[in-house]
Simulated scan of single mutants.
Amino acid sequence: MTWVVMVAVGIFAAVGLWSAAADPAPVSAEETARKVSQSLRCPTCAGESIADSSAMLSDAMRQTVEQQVRQGRSADEIRAWFAERYGDQVLLAPPRSGYGWMLWTAPLALVGAAVVVLLVGGASTRRRWWAALLALAVTALAGVWLFVPQTTTPDPQTMQQEGTPQVDAIAVLRDAVDHAPGNAGLRIAFGGALEEAGKDAEAVEAYAAATRLRPLDPDTRYRHAFALVRSGEPGAAREVLEESLHVRQDHVPSLLLLGALVHGEDPERGSALLQQFVQLAPEHPAADQVTAFVEGELDEVPAEVLP
Rank of each mutant, 00 (worst) to 15 (best):
L118S: 03
W130L: 10
R187V: 05
T105C: 06
A132E: 00
Q160Y: 01
Q67S: 05
G182I: 04
Q161G: 03
G121C: 06
T125I: 05
A197H: 10
G121M: 11
D178A: 15
E196Q: 15
R126C: 00
R85T: 04
L173P: 07
G191Y: 00
L173V: 07
A83V: 15
T152A: 00
L118H: 00
N183T: 06
R128M: 12
S97A: 15
E162Y: 04
P165S: 02
E196C: 01
E66M: 08
R96N: 08
A135I: 05
Y99F: 14
Y99W: 10
Q68E: 07
Q89Y: 01
A180I: 02
V204Y: 04
V172T: 13
A189N: 05
W145A: 12
W104R: 13
P107A: 06
D168Q: 11
V172C: 08
K199W: 02
V138S: 06
W130K: 03
L103R: 15
A75P: 08
M159V: 11
P149I: 00
W101Q: 06
A135C: 13
Q63P: 01
A201V: 12
V167Q: 06
L92A: 15
Q63Y: 02
R79N: 04
V117I: 11
G100T: 05
Y86W: 13
I188D: 01
W104F: 15
E196S: 13
T153R: 14
A132G: 09
A201T: 15
A169Q: 12
V120T: 13
W101M: 10
P94H: 03
L141F: 07
D76Q: 10
S58L: 11
K199R: 15
E77G: 09
